[in-house]
Design a binder for these strands. Structure first.
Lengths: 195, 195
DNA sequence: CGGGTACTGTACCATTCGGTCCAGAAGATT
DNA sequence: AATCTTCTGGACCGAATGGTACAGTACCCG
Protein backbone atom coordinates (compact mmCIF):
# COMPACT_ATOMS: atom_id res chain seq x y z
CA UNK A 1 0.00 0.00 0.00
CA UNK A 2 0.84 3.60 -0.67
CA UNK A 3 4.09 2.85 -2.44
CA UNK A 4 4.19 5.23 -5.36
CA UNK A 5 2.49 8.47 -6.05
CA UNK A 6 0.29 9.70 -3.23
CA UNK A 7 -3.31 10.82 -3.55
CA UNK A 8 -3.66 14.38 -4.75
CA UNK A 9 -7.14 14.81 -3.38
CA UNK A 10 -8.60 14.52 0.10
CA UNK A 11 -10.90 11.47 0.03
CA UNK A 12 -13.00 12.90 2.84
CA UNK A 13 -13.54 16.19 1.04
CA UNK A 14 -14.31 14.40 -2.19
CA UNK A 15 -16.88 12.18 -0.53
CA UNK A 16 -18.41 15.20 1.12
CA UNK A 17 -18.61 17.07 -2.17
CA UNK A 18 -20.26 14.09 -3.81
CA UNK A 19 -22.70 13.89 -0.92
CA UNK A 20 -23.60 17.56 -1.23
CA UNK A 21 -24.33 17.10 -4.91
CA UNK A 22 -26.48 14.02 -4.48
CA UNK A 23 -28.19 15.72 -1.55
CA UNK A 24 -29.15 18.71 -3.62
CA UNK A 25 -29.99 17.08 -6.90
CA UNK A 26 -30.90 13.48 -6.10
CA UNK A 27 -29.48 10.41 -7.82
CA UNK A 28 -31.02 10.65 -11.27
CA UNK A 29 -30.68 14.41 -11.18
CA UNK A 30 -26.91 14.40 -10.78
CA UNK A 31 -24.90 13.59 -13.83
CA UNK A 32 -21.38 12.30 -13.79
CA UNK A 33 -20.36 15.69 -15.08
CA UNK A 34 -21.92 17.32 -12.00
CA UNK A 35 -20.01 14.99 -9.73
CA UNK A 36 -16.72 15.70 -11.48
CA UNK A 37 -17.33 19.43 -11.24
CA UNK A 38 -18.25 19.19 -7.57
CA UNK A 39 -15.35 16.96 -6.57
CA UNK A 40 -12.82 18.52 -8.90
CA UNK A 41 -11.73 15.04 -9.89
CA UNK A 42 -11.03 13.84 -13.38
CA UNK A 43 -13.18 11.05 -14.67
CA UNK A 44 -10.43 8.50 -14.15
CA UNK A 45 -9.78 9.60 -10.62
CA UNK A 46 -13.46 9.49 -9.87
CA UNK A 47 -13.82 5.93 -11.07
CA UNK A 48 -10.75 5.02 -9.12
CA UNK A 49 -12.05 6.63 -5.94
CA UNK A 50 -15.56 5.23 -6.28
CA UNK A 51 -16.11 2.39 -8.68
CA UNK A 52 -19.39 3.61 -10.12
CA UNK A 53 -22.01 6.31 -9.77
CA UNK A 54 -24.13 3.91 -7.75
CA UNK A 55 -21.30 3.08 -5.39
CA UNK A 56 -20.55 6.77 -4.92
CA UNK A 57 -24.19 7.33 -4.10
CA UNK A 58 -24.26 4.56 -1.54
CA UNK A 59 -21.14 5.90 0.12
CA UNK A 60 -22.51 9.42 0.05
CA UNK A 61 -25.74 8.36 1.67
CA UNK A 62 -23.94 6.39 4.32
CA UNK A 63 -21.68 9.35 4.98
CA UNK A 64 -24.74 11.56 5.31
CA UNK A 65 -26.31 9.29 7.91
CA UNK A 66 -23.07 9.17 9.82
CA UNK A 67 -22.62 12.92 9.82
CA UNK A 68 -26.22 13.62 10.68
CA UNK A 69 -26.46 11.24 13.59
CA UNK A 70 -23.20 12.29 15.17
CA UNK A 71 -24.14 15.92 14.81
CA UNK A 72 -27.51 15.35 16.38
CA UNK A 73 -26.09 13.25 19.20
CA UNK A 74 -23.59 15.95 19.96
CA UNK A 75 -26.29 18.58 19.91
CA UNK A 76 -28.42 16.57 22.30
CA UNK A 77 -25.47 15.98 24.60
CA UNK A 78 -24.61 19.65 24.88
CA UNK A 79 -28.20 20.91 24.93
CA UNK A 80 -29.56 22.58 28.06
CA UNK A 81 -32.50 20.23 28.14
CA UNK A 82 -34.27 17.57 26.09
CA UNK A 83 -37.15 19.95 25.46
CA UNK A 84 -34.86 22.69 24.24
CA UNK A 85 -33.04 20.25 21.95
CA UNK A 86 -36.30 19.21 20.33
CA UNK A 87 -37.43 22.78 19.88
CA UNK A 88 -34.10 23.84 18.44
CA UNK A 89 -34.04 21.04 15.90
CA UNK A 90 -37.58 21.76 14.75
CA UNK A 91 -36.94 25.47 14.51
CA UNK A 92 -33.72 25.01 12.62
CA UNK A 93 -35.59 22.91 10.06
CA UNK A 94 -38.09 25.73 9.73
CA UNK A 95 -35.15 28.08 9.38
CA UNK A 96 -34.17 26.47 6.11
CA UNK A 97 -37.01 28.45 4.60
CA UNK A 98 -35.14 31.61 5.46
CA UNK A 99 -31.97 31.26 3.46
CA UNK A 100 -32.41 32.42 -0.10
CA UNK A 101 -30.84 29.35 -1.68
CA UNK A 102 -33.03 26.36 -2.33
CA UNK A 103 -33.57 24.14 0.70
CA UNK A 104 -32.02 20.70 0.50
CA UNK A 105 -34.17 19.05 3.13
CA UNK A 106 -33.01 15.79 4.64
CA UNK A 107 -31.09 13.62 2.24
CA UNK A 108 -32.54 10.43 3.69
CA UNK A 109 -36.04 11.70 3.05
CA UNK A 110 -35.13 12.91 -0.42
CA UNK A 111 -33.69 9.53 -1.28
CA UNK A 112 -36.70 7.72 0.17
CA UNK A 113 -38.92 9.88 -2.00
CA UNK A 114 -36.89 9.32 -5.14
CA UNK A 115 -36.45 5.57 -4.82
CA UNK A 116 -39.75 4.55 -3.29
CA UNK A 117 -38.64 1.02 -2.69
CA UNK A 118 -37.23 0.23 -6.09
CA UNK A 119 -33.68 -0.35 -4.91
CA UNK A 120 -33.37 -2.85 -2.09
CA UNK A 121 -29.91 -1.70 -0.99
CA UNK A 122 -30.97 1.91 -0.86
CA UNK A 123 -34.12 1.02 1.04
CA UNK A 124 -32.01 -0.70 3.63
CA UNK A 125 -29.77 2.35 4.05
CA UNK A 126 -32.84 4.54 4.38
CA UNK A 127 -34.64 2.45 6.97
CA UNK A 128 -31.42 2.08 8.89
CA UNK A 129 -30.83 5.82 8.86
CA UNK A 130 -34.38 6.51 9.96
CA UNK A 131 -34.02 4.03 12.77
CA UNK A 132 -30.88 5.67 14.06
CA UNK A 133 -32.27 9.17 13.92
CA UNK A 134 -35.42 7.97 15.64
CA UNK A 135 -33.34 6.60 18.48
CA UNK A 136 -31.87 10.04 19.07
CA UNK A 137 -35.30 11.61 19.26
CA UNK A 138 -36.47 8.87 21.60
CA UNK A 139 -33.47 9.61 23.80
CA UNK A 140 -34.37 13.30 23.76
CA UNK A 141 -37.92 12.49 24.82
CA UNK A 142 -36.67 10.26 27.61
CA UNK A 143 -34.40 13.02 28.81
CA UNK A 144 -37.26 15.50 28.74
CA UNK A 145 -39.33 13.04 30.73
CA UNK A 146 -36.61 12.82 33.35
CA UNK A 147 -36.54 16.60 33.38
CA UNK A 148 -40.31 16.56 33.85
CA UNK A 149 -41.12 18.64 30.79
CA UNK A 150 -42.86 15.65 29.20
CA UNK A 151 -45.26 13.50 31.18
CA UNK A 152 -43.61 10.27 32.32
CA UNK A 153 -46.56 8.11 31.33
CA UNK A 154 -46.20 8.88 27.61
CA UNK A 155 -44.61 6.34 25.32
CA UNK A 156 -41.19 7.76 24.41
CA UNK A 157 -40.86 5.58 21.32
CA UNK A 158 -44.16 6.83 19.99
CA UNK A 159 -43.28 10.44 20.69
CA UNK A 160 -39.84 10.00 19.16
CA UNK A 161 -41.35 8.71 15.94
CA UNK A 162 -43.92 11.47 16.10
CA UNK A 163 -41.20 14.07 16.28
CA UNK A 164 -39.30 12.61 13.36
CA UNK A 165 -42.49 12.53 11.34
CA UNK A 166 -43.27 16.11 12.29
CA UNK A 167 -39.76 17.19 11.38
CA UNK A 168 -40.16 15.62 7.96
CA UNK A 169 -43.47 17.39 7.60
CA UNK A 170 -41.86 20.73 8.39
CA UNK A 171 -39.13 20.11 5.86
CA UNK A 172 -41.74 19.27 3.28
CA UNK A 173 -43.49 22.56 3.89
CA UNK A 174 -40.18 24.31 3.42
CA UNK A 175 -39.66 22.59 0.09
CA UNK A 176 -43.21 23.39 -0.92
CA UNK A 177 -42.35 27.06 -0.57
CA UNK A 178 -44.23 28.13 2.54
CA UNK A 179 -42.97 31.20 4.33
CA UNK A 180 -40.59 30.97 7.23
CA UNK A 181 -43.08 32.48 9.63
CA UNK A 182 -45.85 30.07 8.73
CA UNK A 183 -43.57 27.10 9.19
CA UNK A 184 -41.97 28.23 12.43
CA UNK A 185 -45.45 28.72 13.86
CA UNK A 186 -46.12 25.02 13.34
CA UNK A 187 -43.61 24.17 16.04
CA UNK A 188 -46.13 25.29 18.65
CA UNK A 189 -48.87 22.77 17.86
CA UNK A 190 -46.26 20.10 17.17
CA UNK A 191 -44.79 20.46 20.63
CA UNK A 192 -48.21 20.84 22.18
CA UNK A 193 -48.75 17.17 21.45
CA UNK A 194 -45.89 16.30 23.80
CA UNK A 195 -47.42 18.00 26.79
CA UNK B 1 -61.99 21.29 -36.18
CA UNK B 2 -62.73 17.60 -35.88
CA UNK B 3 -63.27 17.10 -39.57
CA UNK B 4 -61.39 13.97 -40.55
CA UNK B 5 -60.23 11.03 -38.57
CA UNK B 6 -61.28 11.09 -34.92
CA UNK B 7 -58.99 10.55 -31.94
CA UNK B 8 -58.34 6.88 -31.26
CA UNK B 9 -57.40 7.43 -27.63
CA UNK B 10 -59.22 8.92 -24.69
CA UNK B 11 -57.38 12.15 -23.80
CA UNK B 12 -58.57 11.93 -20.21
CA UNK B 13 -57.28 8.39 -19.80
CA UNK B 14 -54.01 9.30 -21.47
CA UNK B 15 -53.49 12.26 -19.19
CA UNK B 16 -54.30 10.11 -16.21
CA UNK B 17 -51.83 7.44 -17.31
CA UNK B 18 -49.13 10.05 -17.76
CA UNK B 19 -49.94 11.44 -14.32
CA UNK B 20 -49.66 8.02 -12.72
CA UNK B 21 -46.25 7.52 -14.28
CA UNK B 22 -44.88 10.90 -13.26
CA UNK B 23 -46.39 10.39 -9.82
CA UNK B 24 -44.61 7.11 -9.31
CA UNK B 25 -41.27 7.87 -10.90
CA UNK B 26 -40.89 11.64 -10.80
CA UNK B 27 -39.93 13.84 -13.72
CA UNK B 28 -36.32 12.87 -14.31
CA UNK B 29 -37.12 9.27 -13.49
CA UNK B 30 -39.71 8.97 -16.21
CA UNK B 31 -38.37 8.48 -19.70
CA UNK B 32 -40.32 9.16 -22.83
CA UNK B 33 -40.36 5.42 -23.33
CA UNK B 34 -42.09 4.97 -19.96
CA UNK B 35 -44.72 7.50 -20.92
CA UNK B 36 -45.38 5.83 -24.26
CA UNK B 37 -45.72 2.46 -22.57
CA UNK B 38 -48.05 3.84 -19.91
CA UNK B 39 -50.26 5.78 -22.28
CA UNK B 40 -50.13 3.27 -25.11
CA UNK B 41 -49.50 6.12 -27.50
CA UNK B 42 -47.00 6.18 -30.28
CA UNK B 43 -44.32 8.79 -30.12
CA UNK B 44 -46.06 10.90 -32.76
CA UNK B 45 -49.39 10.76 -31.02
CA UNK B 46 -47.76 11.65 -27.75
CA UNK B 47 -46.13 14.76 -29.15
CA UNK B 48 -49.39 15.65 -30.78
CA UNK B 49 -51.34 15.22 -27.53
CA UNK B 50 -48.78 17.01 -25.39
CA UNK B 51 -46.20 19.12 -27.06
CA UNK B 52 -43.25 18.08 -24.91
CA UNK B 53 -42.32 16.04 -21.88
CA UNK B 54 -42.35 19.20 -19.80
CA UNK B 55 -45.79 20.21 -21.01
CA UNK B 56 -47.08 16.72 -20.25
CA UNK B 57 -45.64 16.99 -16.78
CA UNK B 58 -47.24 20.35 -16.12
CA UNK B 59 -50.59 19.07 -17.30
CA UNK B 60 -50.22 15.91 -15.24
CA UNK B 61 -49.41 17.88 -12.11
CA UNK B 62 -52.30 20.23 -12.67
CA UNK B 63 -54.59 17.27 -13.22
CA UNK B 64 -53.33 15.74 -10.00
CA UNK B 65 -54.11 18.88 -8.00
CA UNK B 66 -57.54 19.06 -9.56
CA UNK B 67 -58.34 15.45 -8.81
CA UNK B 68 -56.95 15.57 -5.30
CA UNK B 69 -58.75 18.70 -4.22
CA UNK B 70 -62.12 17.69 -5.63
CA UNK B 71 -61.80 14.27 -4.03
CA UNK B 72 -60.91 15.80 -0.67
CA UNK B 73 -63.66 18.38 -0.86
CA UNK B 74 -66.17 15.65 -1.65
CA UNK B 75 -64.88 13.56 1.22
CA UNK B 76 -65.20 16.46 3.61
CA UNK B 77 -68.70 17.24 2.38
CA UNK B 78 -69.94 13.69 2.93
CA UNK B 79 -68.00 13.05 6.15
CA UNK B 80 -69.90 12.56 9.40
CA UNK B 81 -67.86 15.26 11.07
CA UNK B 82 -64.82 17.43 10.57
CA UNK B 83 -62.95 15.45 13.18
CA UNK B 84 -63.73 12.15 11.50
CA UNK B 85 -62.68 13.55 8.13
CA UNK B 86 -59.31 14.56 9.50
CA UNK B 87 -58.78 11.22 11.18
CA UNK B 88 -59.79 9.31 8.07
CA UNK B 89 -57.43 11.24 5.83
CA UNK B 90 -54.51 10.75 8.18
CA UNK B 91 -55.24 7.07 8.62
CA UNK B 92 -55.60 6.49 4.91
CA UNK B 93 -52.18 8.03 4.39
CA UNK B 94 -50.84 5.62 6.98
CA UNK B 95 -52.67 2.85 5.14
CA UNK B 96 -50.43 3.29 2.14
CA UNK B 97 -47.83 1.41 4.10
CA UNK B 98 -50.09 -1.62 4.04
CA UNK B 99 -50.36 -2.31 0.33
CA UNK B 100 -47.46 -4.38 -0.95
CA UNK B 101 -46.73 -2.15 -3.91
CA UNK B 102 -44.47 0.80 -3.39
CA UNK B 103 -46.20 3.87 -1.96
CA UNK B 104 -46.44 6.84 -4.25
CA UNK B 105 -47.01 9.48 -1.61
CA UNK B 106 -48.43 12.80 -2.63
CA UNK B 107 -47.38 13.90 -6.09
CA UNK B 108 -47.20 17.54 -5.06
CA UNK B 109 -44.77 16.69 -2.30
CA UNK B 110 -42.77 14.43 -4.57
CA UNK B 111 -42.46 17.16 -7.12
CA UNK B 112 -41.55 19.73 -4.49
CA UNK B 113 -38.80 17.39 -3.31
CA UNK B 114 -37.44 16.72 -6.79
CA UNK B 115 -37.45 20.33 -8.03
CA UNK B 116 -36.53 22.21 -4.90
CA UNK B 117 -37.15 25.54 -6.46
CA UNK B 118 -35.22 25.14 -9.65
CA UNK B 119 -38.18 25.46 -11.97
CA UNK B 120 -40.25 28.59 -11.41
CA UNK B 121 -43.34 27.30 -13.19
CA UNK B 122 -43.34 24.06 -11.25
CA UNK B 123 -42.80 25.93 -8.00
CA UNK B 124 -45.88 27.96 -8.73
CA UNK B 125 -47.98 24.88 -9.39
CA UNK B 126 -46.71 23.36 -6.16
CA UNK B 127 -47.38 26.35 -3.94
CA UNK B 128 -50.76 26.78 -5.54
CA UNK B 129 -51.62 23.13 -4.93
CA UNK B 130 -50.46 23.34 -1.34
CA UNK B 131 -52.53 26.43 -0.81
CA UNK B 132 -55.66 24.78 -2.10
CA UNK B 133 -55.22 21.64 -0.05
CA UNK B 134 -54.51 23.75 3.00
CA UNK B 135 -57.81 25.54 2.52
CA UNK B 136 -59.63 22.23 2.68
CA UNK B 137 -57.94 21.33 5.94
CA UNK B 138 -58.70 24.75 7.34
CA UNK B 139 -62.33 24.23 6.39
CA UNK B 140 -62.30 20.85 8.15
CA UNK B 141 -60.89 22.45 11.30
CA UNK B 142 -63.51 25.18 11.18
CA UNK B 143 -66.22 22.57 10.85
CA UNK B 144 -64.80 20.61 13.78
CA UNK B 145 -64.78 23.84 15.79
CA UNK B 146 -68.43 24.38 15.01
CA UNK B 147 -69.02 20.80 16.06
CA UNK B 148 -67.16 21.55 19.27
CA UNK B 149 -64.53 18.82 18.84
CA UNK B 150 -61.82 21.42 18.47
CA UNK B 151 -61.64 24.39 20.81
CA UNK B 152 -63.04 27.53 19.22
CA UNK B 153 -60.19 29.74 20.39
CA UNK B 154 -57.60 27.90 18.29
CA UNK B 155 -56.37 29.42 15.03
CA UNK B 156 -57.90 27.29 12.25
CA UNK B 157 -55.35 28.41 9.69
CA UNK B 158 -52.51 27.36 11.93
CA UNK B 159 -54.11 24.00 12.66
CA UNK B 160 -54.91 23.45 8.98
CA UNK B 161 -51.30 23.99 8.05
CA UNK B 162 -50.26 21.83 10.95
CA UNK B 163 -52.43 19.00 9.65
CA UNK B 164 -51.04 19.28 6.15
CA UNK B 165 -47.54 19.24 7.53
CA UNK B 166 -48.35 16.23 9.68
CA UNK B 167 -49.88 14.44 6.74
CA UNK B 168 -46.72 15.00 4.73
CA UNK B 169 -44.73 13.69 7.65
CA UNK B 170 -46.79 10.54 7.77
CA UNK B 171 -46.34 9.98 4.06
CA UNK B 172 -42.62 10.44 4.47
CA UNK B 173 -42.54 7.75 7.12
CA UNK B 174 -44.41 5.47 4.76
CA UNK B 175 -41.84 6.08 2.05
CA UNK B 176 -39.05 5.52 4.50
CA UNK B 177 -40.36 2.03 5.07
CA UNK B 178 -41.85 2.20 8.57
CA UNK B 179 -44.47 -0.37 9.45
CA UNK B 180 -48.14 0.34 9.08
CA UNK B 181 -48.77 -0.05 12.79
CA UNK B 182 -46.04 2.37 13.79
CA UNK B 183 -47.32 4.99 11.39
CA UNK B 184 -51.01 4.61 12.22
CA UNK B 185 -50.13 5.07 15.89
CA UNK B 186 -48.76 8.52 15.06
CA UNK B 187 -52.26 9.74 14.32
CA UNK B 188 -52.97 9.79 18.06
CA UNK B 189 -50.32 12.35 19.06
CA UNK B 190 -50.97 14.29 15.87
CA UNK B 191 -54.62 14.74 16.70
CA UNK B 192 -53.86 15.30 20.33
CA UNK B 193 -52.42 18.66 19.33
CA UNK B 194 -55.84 19.73 18.11
CA UNK B 195 -57.54 19.22 21.44
C1' DC C 1 18.99 8.14 -10.66
C1' DG C 2 16.26 4.22 -12.01
C1' DG C 3 12.24 1.46 -11.46
C1' DG C 4 7.92 0.71 -10.13
C1' DT C 5 3.50 2.53 -8.63
C1' DA C 6 -0.59 4.84 -9.24
C1' DC C 7 -2.58 9.14 -10.43
C1' DT C 8 -4.20 12.25 -14.55
C1' DG C 9 -6.35 13.73 -18.91
C1' DT C 10 -8.25 12.47 -23.22
C1' DA C 11 -10.14 9.86 -26.68
C1' DC C 12 -13.47 6.66 -27.25
C1' DC C 13 -17.62 3.52 -26.63
C1' DA C 14 -22.54 1.95 -26.80
C1' DT C 15 -26.82 3.37 -25.17
C1' DT C 16 -30.42 6.28 -24.14
C1' DC C 17 -32.20 10.72 -23.84
C1' DG C 18 -35.91 14.07 -25.69
C1' DG C 19 -37.46 15.46 -30.04
C1' DT C 20 -38.41 15.92 -35.32
C1' DC C 21 -39.94 14.37 -39.73
C1' DC C 22 -42.22 12.08 -43.16
C1' DA C 23 -44.65 8.62 -45.79
C1' DG C 24 -48.72 6.35 -45.43
C1' DA C 25 -52.97 4.48 -43.46
C1' DA C 26 -57.59 5.27 -41.58
C1' DG C 27 -61.80 7.50 -40.90
C1' DA C 28 -65.48 11.18 -41.73
C1' DT C 29 -67.86 14.16 -45.02
C1' DT C 30 -69.56 15.05 -49.43
C1' DA D 1 -65.80 6.76 -54.46
C1' DA D 2 -63.21 11.19 -53.93
C1' DT D 3 -61.20 14.06 -50.91
C1' DC D 4 -59.76 16.02 -46.96
C1' DT D 5 -58.22 15.72 -42.40
C1' DT D 6 -55.74 13.68 -38.88
C1' DC D 7 -53.74 9.86 -36.60
C1' DT D 8 -49.84 6.24 -36.78
C1' DG D 9 -45.32 3.92 -37.02
C1' DG D 10 -40.70 4.11 -37.86
C1' DA D 11 -36.53 6.30 -39.45
C1' DC D 12 -33.65 9.63 -38.03
C1' DC D 13 -31.28 13.41 -35.22
C1' DG D 14 -27.81 15.67 -32.03
C1' DA D 15 -26.69 15.70 -27.40
C1' DA D 16 -25.80 13.70 -23.08
C1' DT D 17 -25.72 9.60 -20.42
C1' DG D 18 -22.58 6.25 -17.56
C1' DG D 19 -18.48 3.83 -18.30
C1' DT D 20 -13.76 2.04 -20.36
C1' DA D 21 -9.05 2.04 -22.33
C1' DC D 22 -4.87 3.91 -22.76
C1' DA D 23 -0.91 6.72 -23.03
C1' DG D 24 1.58 9.83 -20.35
C1' DT D 25 3.41 11.66 -16.13
C1' DA D 26 4.27 12.87 -11.33
C1' DC D 27 5.83 10.91 -7.28
C1' DC D 28 8.13 7.74 -3.60
C1' DC D 29 11.63 4.38 -2.47
C1' DG D 30 15.81 2.12 -2.88
Amino acid sequence: MSIGRPLEYDPAKVLDAAMQTFWRRGYEGTSLHDLLAATGLSKSSFYQAFSSKQAAFHQALTHYCETLTTRLREKLRTADSGWEFIETVLLSAAGEARAGDDPRGCMIVNVATEFSSRDAQVSELVTDGVKRVTLIFVAAVRRAQKEQTIAADKDPKLLGRYLLSSLSGLRTMVKAGSSHGAIAALVIPIMAALK
